[in-house]
Simulated scan of single mutants.
Amino acid sequence: MTDDDNVVTIAEMSPRDGLQNEKQPVDAETKITLVDRLSRCGLRYIEAGSFVSPKWVPQMADSEKVFAGIHRFSGTTYAALTPNLKGWEHAYQASADEVAVFASASESFSQRNLNCDVFTSLKRFASVVQAAKAANKKVRAYISCALDCPFEGPIAPETVGRLTAALLAMGCYQVSLGDTIGTGTPGRVRTLLRALQSVSKSHQLALHMHDTYGQAIANIYVGLEEGIRTLDASVGGLGGCPYAKGATGNVATEDVVYLLEREGLKHGIDLDMLIQTGDWISKQLGKPYNARAGKALQSRRNNLCVP
């Protein structure tokens, strides 16, 4: 194993994917504080907001204010989700370091999430990639429903492979594979990753695992075994999919960092500060703190305290 093989990057999703489905408004100051706290934890990739229609995602309507208010740490990428050229223009004006586009491996999910078929979504993304390249900005891509769709059921790895190849050929530097409804299992994740070896290299792929059925860490471990070194996660396990009833959200960043530490992989993140941040934002949202490793470490340390 080389030094590069021993380093894992976590793409922090909580300010965007973690907050976008909150029913109660989350003010910009709370979002700014969250991003700043995550930066201080040592996270070097933070998706700080998205530039989508406020009609569809009202929680992200203040992303310009968030990008204007955060303290930008040297060496940290502050990214934005952009569904189309208009979104790209707003992200560029907000000085996002890079942008991300999002496709679906399922036609049904694409229609519900993007209001268009997969082919049309790719045409829109091509315009974003072209504009970003002209501005020397990188573009990352997500594939939703890379394993299962809530409407169509299991998705064939070949379908994901064709979409991955198209996004990479378009100019996206990395494709994050999303287990959007959290139904994936380790064997199926391994099958998918091996099927993609013919169209991509391991550094061009990331995993975006939701933990609805408690499989996210096991799926991530398989990804690590298969050479994946970029993992999406959300502090406190915030987030989820509106089409997956009972979904528990993204895999918790704390749980991923704990796994990496115990497996001897480098990540550059202060786990104690991360736990404090996850606990803090959960309280701001009026939610229980759901990071399993975070709660366990909090409990252990509290029990060791001497009054």
Rank of each mutant, 00 (worst) to 15 (best):
S74D: 15
A165N: 13
V199F: 07
F119L: 09
K23H: 12
E29D: 14
G153L: 04
A252F: 10
G178E: 00
T230H: 09
D17Y: 00
M170Y: 13
E254Q: 01
G239E: 06
W56I: 02
A132N: 05
D17Q: 00
V129D: 02
T33C: 07
L238D: 10
Q24N: 13
Y289M: 12
T164Y: 05
A233Q: 02
L122E: 00
H90T: 03
V8N: 00
Q174L: 12
T120G: 01
A165G: 07
L147D: 03
V129G: 04
P307N: 12
R140P: 00
G214K: 03
M209L: 15
F51E: 09
G75M: 01
K138V: 05
P157S: 07
E226F: 13
A291I: 12
Y221D: 12
D279R: 14
G187A: 13
Y173W: 14
A48W: 01
K201T: 15
H90I: 01
L260K: 01
N21S: 13
Y92T: 05
L192C: 04
N303D: 14
A68Y: 04
A218R: 04
V160C: 10
K23P: 04
P186N: 05
D36Y: 05
W280L: 11
A156I: 02
F73H: 14
D17M: 00
Y173Q: 11
S110H: 06
N136P: 00
L297I: 15
A166E: 14
G264Y: 05
D179T: 12
G223F: 13
Q276G: 08
S110D: 06
V139N: 03
Q111W: 06
P307S: 13
R162Y: 08
N84L: 07
W88I: 02
A48Y: 03
D270G: 02
K55Q: 14
S63F: 11
M273D: 14
V99H: 05
T82H: 03
A195Q: 10
R300E: 14
A94R: 06
S127D: 14
C145G: 07
Y213N: 11
S50K: 00
T30Q: 03
G268A: 09
P288Q: 09
P157N: 03
N84T: 07
K23C: 02
